[in-house]
Every structure is written in structure tokens, then in C-alpha cells.
Design a protein around this nucleic acid. Structure first.
Length: 790
DNA sequence: AGCACGCCGACT
DNA sequence: GTCGGCGTGCTC
């Protein structure tokens, strides 16, 4: 008996499997889907058994060393899915299987040592009868690291990885300055340590785990010197308990009924079908989801419900929990690894029939998936940005193909691609053109900020927005202000010589925070305390340009001094609970005005909000990405949906510098269809998706010159492959410097491949083992159908 | 990832 | 003639 194993090792040629003999004592436990430990070269690594065979052509097979779980973790369909994924996203098999399992199962690999075949030392043998960590071994036998590597070489010792379940308690380390220490306690040359010192002086405490790598090292040496104190703090899991008044839904509208019946029919006939439900905000999509889930369960099928970000959609989770009680598992980012594992096991053991969760819940270990619902299907959180760079919709499609089920995508603003697919019969389009409740969508009033400026209004607020806010406040109603940029100001500029403060390792301008007291790099978190003068010309005239949520808050407070303002962005979300807290505060009317970034665009349902202000609507339009118009439209629609949810009518004031842009024009009138028709023409003319498929190659390394050289090489290789295999309908663009050229001291170039021949390219790139063709220190990562091209 | 293998310059 | 740098390639 031979086991075919996908080995987990970030190694070249890993789209292939390795054969191992199965030791007699493990025979009855090992089957496809088992996780095993196998000898691989001189190491022992994790592997996934994919198949059991009678024979192998390979001679000199090794034995499987051990098995990790009592039962196989993956069923036949999941193995098929993993194989398909590895090919589709050009990654290793093990990487795909890792993505399917809860992280608690994979992250706790501990290196331990045990005796090898050439160990004749009885003392060592007894000591290592249970595997020991390196530290224990060194302590007990007084060995040096050279001794150990020598012993490993000679086969006296064997290094292996141990996979242990972590305790479900989570800890973080808090750093504080020791009382009474000063700058002089740190050696003059230790630049990083001084940097950390400044941060701690200003912020009092900092979470160690959140520091950038460079500062972590500095932190450790300062802890050793006693300048900094390190304390362990337990992080408590946060139960998801927002009190939301349930809207009582008595019966479905005729539109809802029709949608329900259409999907329901496919469920009854066990047909493999895909639907796109295009329903305006508030049209009652959730109610349809609930009823369809009920239907699927009654037929003994399992249901997966996916939401973009579970923390931001407490409503959906609540409604499923209320309706199905114990039959629902929830997988959200607020759970500890251990808790996630518990939920996962509940699903695996068939104790629940429904899971509500974010992206990775698409891999929920159900046996019989009959329905997958993807809400807000246009959200880009459905694309995983790390390897395997999968898109949740694609995975869902593939799963349902394997288990014969129905896919239901829902959105008020479907992605251009999805809508395009409905025209070509890949998805069936379902419409909910009317809100389920009586109130209409709020009116969107577009204000041209250029003419405001011409009329002498230089403030952040247009006259209209100011009036509307005032009116709402006077009526004791609430206001939501949306600005998609956090921090105080985006650039700090010397007015004399034009110097701008930039991050030394990222080539990005530093955003000032805390009233300009800090400059922070939003990418690597490099910090600088408030500069007094320009480092280039010593001028003291510095100006803070560009507006972020912090500055907005300050301005609003100035103009409406009596109002109570709440702010919601990454910076105010220090703990998992902050979101719920602010949400609850605003719901309880402990705040008059809520200021926020993207975070407030989704799922907020406050009946007393009558003014919504979009401070700068066209911020996203300047991003050089083919999806920027689409994204802007979606964001405007979403934010607008926050107004007028109760009995009172709401107003949306949209401020913009480009009122004539088609994205702004159509979104302000809720004309998605018209926008779509225009956008799809542009996509066709410029040869962008959905008319072409993109594969993006990122070339990253820390040596500027080498990256450029390799990037040219990547483009050359692609052109050669294209020529050699005569691939038609393809275009290789680049290499070009990435939009964010330098990040964390790494330089990046990119090459784009546009093609209508995806299948052939995937076959060739996989066969050719493309991502691993490059020399050490150069990382070439491939993104198949990326969501952005920047 | 590790580690061996092999090819080239520096040195006993 | 040997030691050790690291570029290349393999691990069932």
C-alpha cells in the first residue's frame, strides 16, 4: 500500500505529490484526507494524504512517520477542490489544504528532537523517549548548537515538527517604559531603540505584537536592559452581543416571493444553478436568505452564508441565530483560534447545518453543501490577498459543482463582472427593485466643491452640508459623516522648500495623527514625533495638508461646539469590542454625529440618521485602477443607504470636485444600470475585465537593481512561453514599477498578462513551475485575476 | 526550507 | 593540492 502525499514545504516543484509506504500499525488509520508526518530530505514535515495506491514506480520509498489526527480532516470533494485550487491559483497543494483548515490546526508546529537510528547513547535514548525542545536538550546535556547540527548530520538526533493544539486563551505583550528612565539610558548609536523610546514616551504603552519587525528587536534589547517593561496580558474573547431591535417581517412582498420561489425551485430539483440577486438597499434580501436556508435544511442539505466581514455585519448573524438557534455555527475574526476550532469541529461532526462566516467559511467542512449564499458579493474582501490568492465566489462555484448545489450572490451594487455574467447566462438575474419598507431611498444632493471655493467657501463643509447638519441637530436627529481616509492630515509639507516627510523604508508620505503630534507610515507603522522644523532647510513653517477623519472631527467640533461626536476608524478601534461599543453608543443616541471611514458604510442601521455627508466622494477616482469608478459608485450607494432608515426622510450631501464624472453622476441618482452600460463600454474599449482575464506578477526584493533585472526577465520568460506554445489572444505588459514602489525596504515591479486564453496559460505556468524559477532573494508572486492592478 | 553537490579563487 | 565561498538542484 502506497500513500500519495502532498508535502507541506515551501519548495520548488510542489505541485507534485510524493509516494510513501504505510507502516502496518498505521494502515487502518490512514486514508485520503489524513494529515501525516513524513520524512522529507533530512526533515520531517507535514503532509496531506491524497490517495492510497497499490503500486508506485518509484523505488526506495520511505515510510510515513506518523499520523496527526484520529480521522481524516478532508473528504473526497475537499481533496478535489484543493487540487483544483492549486492549479487555478498556481500555488502548492499543501498551501491550499492549509487554507481550508482552521489555523489552530496548523500554526502550532513546535520543533522538537528525538533519537535517530544512529543513537547508541542509552542516557540520550531514555531522555528522548518523549521528544524534547531544543532548550531542554541543551540544558540537560550541555550541548552547543554545533554539536546538535553534527548529531543531526550523523543521525544521532532527529529534528521534527510537533503539532499541538494551542490553549484557547490568547495573550498579548504590553510594553511600557520603566519608571524614571531617560534617553541617556540608551546607547547613543542605537537609533531604533531611541525611536521606540519616543513612541513609548508618547503613547505610554504599546502592544509588542503590533510593532514593526525592526522595532521588535529594539524592544527586546531594551527589555533585557531593563529600560522597558514587558507585561503579559490576556485578551478576552468578545461575545457578539449587540442589542438590535428586530424588524418584524410578516410577509414577503411580491418581488421577494418571486425571488424566493425561483431559487427554491432549483433547490427542490437539486439543480446546479447560480443566481445573482440584485436588490436595492433595504429590499429585504436577508429575509429571503433565511427562508432559502430553511428550505435547504428541510431537504437535509447544509448551508454556507458568507458576509464580507463578520464584525461589520452583526445584523445578519443575529437574524440567523435567532431563527436557527443551535443549528448555526459562526466563524468570525473575534474568535480565538481555539474557539474557531470548536466551531469547525461542530460543523465537521454534523452538529449544525448552517454556518455564517467570512471568506474562509467557504471551506466549512460540511458533507452535503446544498446552498451557498454570498452577501455583498461585490466586496473585495472575498478575494484573499495571500497565497492561495483565491476568490471566494470561484471556490463556492467549484464546491457546488462537486456537491450539486445552488449559489446565490446578493448585492445592491453587483460587481461589473457578475452583472456581465448574467448577460451571458452564467448567472440568472433576480431583481428586487423596491424597498420592502415604505420609505424611499434618500435623495442625494451633489455639491460641486470647486464652485464652493470660487464663492469663497474654503471650509470642509459646503453651505448645503452645513445647513443640513444644523437642521438635523436642531431636530435632535443624527448625522453620519463619511471620509475614506484616516489620520489628521496626509502630507506634511515645508512651506519654504517644499520638503515632504516620507517614510524612510516605504516611499510613502507620512500621515500625521493626534493633532499633528505624530507622523505615521500607514504601511509599516514607522513613527516620528512632531517635527519642529524642516529637516532640509530648517524652516519652522510646516503645513499639514490633506484631510483625514481626525482633522474632520476637529473641524466639526469647532463648527458645532455643542454636538457630541463619535469617530470610527482603525485608530479608534483599539480593541475588538470598540466597534460594538461605538455602535451601541450611537444607537443609544449618546452621540449626535458619527464620523468614519469605510467601516461605517456597511450594515449600519440607525433610524434617527437624517443627514449623511460624503466629505470627498471622488477620492477613490484618482487611484489608477480599472475598478476605481466601480468602487466609487458602490461606496457612494452604500454610504447613502445609511440615511433615512426610520420614519424620517433622510438627505445625503455628496461633496465632490468632479460632479460631472459618470460614476458620481449616476451614483447620485441610483442609476446602476446606466452606470453599468457606460462602464462596460469603457472596459471593452480599454480591454479590461470582464473582456479579458488578468494574471499579475509581482517581483519583490530588497535590492533595487536586481528587482528591475528580474522583472525584465519575468516579462522575457512570459514572451518566450507565449511564442513557444503559440498562445493566442494574449498581451504581456511591463515590467513597470509598482504604484507603491518601495514598501518596508523592498522594491517592487510588476508584469501584467492580459489574456483570453486563461486555461492554456494556467496549464503552462503550472507545468513550467513559474513562481519558483527565480534566484534566491527574489520573490515572484502570481495573482490570478487580481481585484486591483495597483 | 535545508542540505548536498560542484565549481572557482585563496591559501597551507 | 586543499579549504570554503555560494550558485544550483533535489527531497518519495
Amino acid at each position: 500500500m502506497i500513500a500519495e502525499v502532498a508535502v507541506d514545504c515551501p519548495m520548488k516543484k510542489l505541485n507534485k505529490v510524493f509516494h510513501y509506504l504505510i507502516p502496518p500499525h498505521l494502515k487502518q488509520f490512514i486514508s485520503p484526507g489524513s494529515r501525516v508526518i513524513v520524512p522529507f530530505g533530512r526533515q520531517r514535515v507535514l503532509g496531506y494524504v491524497l490517495d492510497i495506491k497499490e503500486h508506485s514506480d518509484i523505488t526506495q520509498l520511505k515510510y510515513i512517520h506518523d499520523i496527526l489526527d484520529g480521522q481524516p480532516l478532508l473528504d473526497e470533494n475537499m481533496i478535489k477542490l484543493g487540487k483544483w485550487m492549486a492549479h487555478r491559483y498556481i500555488t502548492s497543494l499543501a498551501c491550499c489544504f492549509n487554507a481550508m483548515l482552521p489555523s489552530a490546526l496548523k500554526t502550532n508546529a513546535v520543533e522538537k528532537y528525538t533519537v535517530g537510528d544512529n543513537c547508541y547513547d542509552e542516557k540520550l535514548k531514555t531522555f528522548l523517549s518523549t521528544p524534547k525542545a531544543l532548550g531542554e536538550l541543551i540544558k540537560a546535556f550541555g550541548l552547543s548548537s554545533q554539536d546538535i547540527s553534527l548529531y543531526i548530520k550523523r543521525g544521532v538526533l532527529v529534528k521534527q515538527k510537533h503539532y499541538e493544539h494551542k490553549s484557547s486563551q490568547k495573550y498579548i505583550d504590553i510594553l511600557q517604559l520603566t519608571k524614571g528612565v531617560t534617553k541617556e539610558d540608551i546607547s547613543k548609536r542605537a537609533y531604533r531603540q531611541h525611536q521606540l523610546f519616543e513612541v513609548l514616551k508618547n503613547q505610554k504603552e504599546v502592544v509588542f505584537q503590533k510593532l514593526p519587525v525592526e522595532l521588535k528587536r529594539a524592544a527586546n534589547s531594551l527589555v533585557e536592559k531593563g529600560v522597558v517593561l514587558k507585561k503579559q496580558k490576556q485578551v478576552f474573547r468578545e461575545p457578539n452581543n449587540i442589542n438590535i431591535q428586530e424588524k418584524c417581517v410578516i410577509s414577503l412582498t411580491s418581488y421577494q416571493k418571486q425571488v424566493f420561489e425561483t431559487v427554491s425551485e432549483s433547490l427542490s430539483n437539486l439543480k446546479r444553478d447560480s443566481f445573482l440577486l440584485w436588490g436595492v438597499t433595504g429590499s429585504g434580501k436577508t429575509e429571503i436568505y433565511l427562508r432559502l436556508a430553511e428550505k435547504a435544511i428541510s431537504q437535509n442539505n447544509d448551508v454556507i452564508v458568507l458576509v464580507p466581514e463578520i464584525a461589520l455585519t452583526p445584523l445578519m448573524v443575529n437574524r440567523f441565530k435567532n431563527k436557527f438557534n443551535d443549528n448555526v455555527a459562526v466563524l468570525h475574526s473575534g474568535l480565538s483560534q481555539g474557539e474557531k476550532l470548536d466551531q469547525w469541529q461542530k460543523i465537521k461532526e454534523g452538529k449544525v447545518k448552517i454556518v455564517v462566516g467570512a471568506r474562509s467559511a467557504v471551506f466549512a467542512p460540511f458533507k452535503n453543501v446544498g446552498l451557498i449564499i454570498i452577501d455583498e458579493e461585490h466586496e473585495n474582501t472575498y478575494k484573499q490577498e495571500e497565497n492561495p490568492k483565491y476568490h471566494t465566489i470561484e471556490i463556492a462555484q467549484k464546491r457546488l459543482e462537486l456537491s450539486q448545489g445552488v449559489l446565490l450572490l446578493g448585492s445592491a451594487t453587483p460587481s461589473i463582472e457578475s452583472l456581465y455574467r448574467t448577460e451571458h447566462g452564467e448567472y440568472k438575474l433576480l431583481n428586487l427593485p423596491k424597498r420592502a419598507t415604505a420609505n424611499e431611498m434618500p435623495l442625494i444632493d451633489v455639491v460641486d466643491m470647486k464652485s464652493e471655493l470660487e464663492n469663497g467657501n474654503r471650509s470642509i463643509f459646503s453651505k448645503k452640508l452645513f445647513k443640513s447638519i444644523k437642521k438635523s441637530l436642531d431636530n435632535n436627529e443624527q448625522v453620519v459623516l463619511f471620509l475614506n481616509r484616516r489620520g489628521f492630515s496626509t502630507t506634511t509639507l515645508c512651506r519654504k522648500c517644499g520638503f515632504t516627510f516620507k517614510c524612510p523604508s516605504c516611499d510613502l508620505t507620512l500621515t500625521s495623527h493626534d493633532n499633528g503630534n505624530f507622523l505615521i507610515c500607514h504601511y509599516c507603522h514607522y513613527q516620528l514625533s512632531k517635527p519642529n522644523s524642516c529637516p532640509s532647510c530648517k524652516s519652522i513653517h510646516l503645513s499639514f495638508n490633506g484631510i483625514g477623519t481626525e482633522k474632520l472631527q476637529k473641524e466639526v467640533q469647532k463648527v458645532f461646539p455643542k454636538s457630541k461626536i463619535l469617530r470610527m476608524d482603525v485608530d479608534t478601534m483599539s480593541s475588538k469590542d470598540s466597534y460594538n461599543k461605538v455602535y451601541q453608543q450611537f444607537a443609544d443616541k449618546q452621540g449626535d454625529i458619527l464620523i468614519g471611514t469605510q467601516m461605517i458604510a456597511k450594515g449600519f442601521d440607525f433610524p434617527d440618521v437624517t443627514t449623511v455627508g460624503i466629505i470627498i466622494a471622488d477620492m477613490g477616482l484618482n487611484i489608477p485602477d480599472f475598478r476605481s469608478a466601480e468602487k466609487t459608485f458602490q461606496l457612494v450607494t452604500q454610504v447613502a443607504g445609511r440615511a433615512g432608515r426610520g420614519d424620517k426622510a433622510g438627505v445625503v450631501i455628496l461633496q465632490t470636485y468632479s460632479p460631472e464624472h459618470y460614476s458620481i453622476e449616476h451614483s447620485s441618482k441610483y442609476q446602476y444600470k446606466q452606470f453599468y452600460l457606460k462602464e462596460i463600454k469603457i472596459r471593452e474599449a480599454l480591454n479590461y475585465p470582464p473582456f479579458v482575464k488578468i494574471i499579475k506578477f509581482d517581483i519583490v526584493a530588497n535590492q533595487e537593481e536586481r528587482v528591475k533585472k528580474e522583472a525584465i526577465e519575468v516579462a522575457e520568460m512570459l514572451k518566450e512561453l507565449q511564442k513557444k506554445h503559440q498562445i493566442q489572444k494574449s498581451e504581456i505588459l511591463g515590467p513597470v514599477m509598482s504604484a507603491r514602489y518601495k514598501l518596508r525596504n523592498n522594491y517592487r515591479w510588476q508584469v501584467m498578462l492580459k489574456t483570453n486564453n486563461m486555461k492554456q496559460w494556467l496549464d503552462i505556468l503550472n507545468k513550467y513551475n513559474f513562481p519558483h524559477k527565480f534566484s534566491k532573494g527574489i520573490r515572484v508572486s502570481i495573482d490570478v485575476e487580481p481585484t486591483t492592478t495597483t
